[in-house]
């Protein structure tokens, strides 16, 4: 039991913060209930997928600055394909969008491996490229989302307090992450993030693993873009604020920048916490700009504490 707690200490801490925040929310707004949960969950969805995308590459020892741009590409592609599409076409559109996400991620990864340019630089350059692609697909916000697909993330599931969008998130992440983590590929991703040279000498195909990690990142980004289109009802070619938000959620979630440590559950709890804080501050009718300050401060303070603790730990 104690081993379980030390192993998942960070996640458990985050979870208790989340519970405290929910209690606080209930105190601020006594009528906070099913509909509040639903809107919170729906607002979190794109952020959560962006965070999952970022978490995978950070665990693999990299970083992807182009997450938000890839989401924009996926979002506009979905909006264009679904515009006036029938049932069959919608399914095709979803599959196409997910494949495009995989391809975009794989291109990022392949470029990093082939050019041997640092990942920050490659994804910085690709940020412009994907942004440009999104603008070429759709010059201004437009397109549409198929109504029945939109119903997939609106409203409660079975019981009134369980939002469909939350179930959607859990199912998608679990379908991708759980098999991945248990497979050889997942182990390889942790290995190259922890120590690339050691992984190489142990027979891990470093280049291929890195490309796969970026491809999974692209897949999550595509899901993020898709849900964004579903929740707004149209495609938006200008990338949203998902880069900063995903990096901060990943770090808050206990994934070490530099790779090899962490999982996907922590970052997703962290992203919900960040959204909930934002909602609480809005409920308390605090200026939304102050909310940005609070968010940034939480992130910096937590990271500073984490840094000091890690440093102390190393010195002992």
């Amino acid at each position: 039991m104690s081993r379980l707690i030390t192993k998942h200490g960070w996640t458990a801490g985050l979870l208790s913060i989340l519970v405290l925040l929910f209690i606080l929310t209930r105190m601020i707004q006594p009528e906070f209930g099913a509909s509040g949960l639903d809107s919170l969950s729906r607002a979190t969805l794109p952020f959560a997928f962006a965070t999952a995308a970022m978490a995978v590459v950070v665990i693999a020892g990299g970083i992807d600055l182009s997450v938000a741009s890839m989401m924009a590409v996926a979002g506009v592609t979905a909006a264009v394909l679904m515009d006036g599409a029938g049932d069959g076409m919608t399914v095709v559109a979803v599959i196409v969008v997910l494949l495009i996400g995989l391809a975009m991620g794989a291109i990022n990864g392949a470029l990093i491996v082939l050019t041997r340019v640092p990942d920050i630089v490659v994804t910085l350059a690709m940020l412009y490229v994907w942004e440009g692609v999104a603008l070429l697909i759709l010059n201004a916000p437009g397109g549409a989302a198929t109504p029945w697909l939109r119903q997939l993330i609106v409203g409660p599931f079975l019981v009134p307090w369980l939002p469909k969008s939350f179930v959607f998130l859990v199912v998608c992440v679990a379908l991708i992450w759980v098999p991945l983590k248990r497979s050889k590929l997942g182990l390889s991703i942790y290995a190259i993030g922890s120590d690339e040279l050691a992984a190489y000498r142990s027979g891990v195909a470093v280049g291929r693993t890195r490309i796969a990690a970026y491809a999974v990142c692209g897949l999550f980004a595509a899901l993020g873009g898709l849900t964004l289109t579903l929740s707004t009802g149209n495609g938006e070619p200008i990338p949203g604020p998902y880069l900063m938000a995903s990096v901060s959620a990943v770090v808050l979630g206990g994934v070490v920048l530099g790779g090899g440590k962490g999982a996907i559950l922590g970052p997703i709890i962290a992203v919900i916490i960040l959204r909930l804080v934002r909602m609480d501050l809005t409920l308390m009718s605090v200026d939304p700009n102050v909310t940005t300050i609070v968010e940034g401060t939480i992130m910096v303070v937590v990271v500073m504490f984490g840094g000091v603790i890690a440093y102390r730990g190393r010195q002992k």
Binding site: I63, I120, M244, V247, S248, V251, L257, G258, D287, N289, V290, T291, T292, I293, V294, E295, G296, T297, M299, V300, V303, M304, F305, G306, G307, V308, A310, Y311
Partner: peptide, 23 residues
Amino acid sequence: VCRVHPLIMTLGTGLIATGCLQV
């Protein structure tokens, strides 16, 4: 002092400062 990764640290201060500027 806190040994935070510069990327994260400067991203965070940038975020805080943007909020302060808007206020």
